[in-house]
């Protein structure tokens, strides 16, 4: 393979990354704009970040979003963990294929459909829409991500370490807490972070399932943008991008580290005494 730099490589790299990140970069740059006009650069300033603290509507929306993300990702992690365990542990039980298909379906389901169907359900059972319904909706679509992450970790899990724990006098329940859970913890944490960021990002499903007093930040941003983009929006978006990026980076680092450690184990096991 030719690893040297060529103009072709350079240009495609710049174009590719530019295509992906230029809009976001522009948004971040203009959040530090002195001018009130989004398209005119008038010098560096952080005043819009200060102005955010005065904007009670945005702050409320941010607080709602974080509560929803925290509760929904925590519940989704527990449910996803159980589903992942079920899929990887209980062998070929009746309906396993159907069950695993149904776990994965929300990954590819159009958000509009998910949102609409949830809305119809909440209306049908005349459930007051608000914080609770948004949270439930977010649990629904993010638990499948956790299930996928947990299941893929459990597939490579050496079950003899659980047997070893039981052999040494540890009952099954305690074995799960003392052995299985700590070993798969990186996968669980990265599943949690993933569903947390998914919940932060979501606009479509939240719009369908929310009610008065439970406006999330993406919804707030969207509704304000319709009245014209202000540098304030740029500032809040920049913060959101920052949080999501940190979450994704931590999640992937955790997964990578876990993988690297296992690879190292295998290398050492293969080495001489």
């Amino acid at each position: 393979m030719n690893r040297g730099f060529t103009w072709f490589n350079g240009v495609s790299l710049v174009l590719g990354f530019g295509f992906l990140y230029l809009p976001i970069l522009l948004l971040i740059v203009y959040s530090f704009n002195e001018s009130k006009l989004v398209t005119v650069w008038a010098g560096f300033s952080t005043k819009w970040y200060g102005a955010l603290l005065e904007n009670q509507g945005l702050l409320d929306a941010a607080w709602v979003t974080f509560r929803v993300a925290f509760v929904s990702s925590t519940v989704a992690t527990i449910l996803g963990l159980v589903a992942g365990l079920m899929l990887s542990r209980f062998g070929a039980f009746r309906g396993r294929v159907l069950f695993s298909g149904m776990i994965y379906a929300p990954l590819v389901m159009p958000e509009v459909i998910t949102g609409l169907s949830l809305l119809l359900m909440f209306v049908a059972i005349s459930f007051d829409r608000g914080f609770v319904t948004v949270t439930i909706a977010h649990i629904t679509f993010s638990m499948c991500y956790v299930a996928v992450v947990v299941q893929s970790r459990l597939i490579s899990f050496d079950r003899s370490i659980e047997e070893a724990a039981m052999d040494l006098g540890c009952p099954p329940g305690r074995t799960f807490l003392l052995i299985t859970l700590p070993v798969i913890m990186p996968a669980i944490v990265s599943g949690w972070l993933l569903s947390f960021t998914l919940s932060l990002d979501d606009l479509v499903i939240a719009s369908f399932t929310t009610g008065p007093g439970a406006t999330t930040l993406p919804m707030k941003i969207y509704s304000q943008v319709r009245l014209g983009v202000t540098p304030e929006i740029n500032a809040v978006s920049t913060i959101l991008v920052g949080i999501v990026a940190v979450g994704v980076v931590i999640a992937s680092v955790l997964a990578k580290r876990d993988e690297a450690r296992r690879a190292q184990d295998e290398r050492l096991a293969a080495a001489a005494p």
Binding site: D158, S160, I161, E163, A164, A165, M166, D167, L168, G169, C170, P171, P172, I179, P182, V183, R261, D265
Partner: peptide, 20 residues
């Protein structure tokens, strides 16, 4: 008698050490 109540211990082929 379940394994965790037997006065018997086993050494596994993969050693099955607790990695953490």
């Amino acid at each position: 008698v379940p394994p965790y109540q037997r006065p018997v211990n086993m050494m596994f082929q993969s050693y099955a050490l607790f990695p953490h």
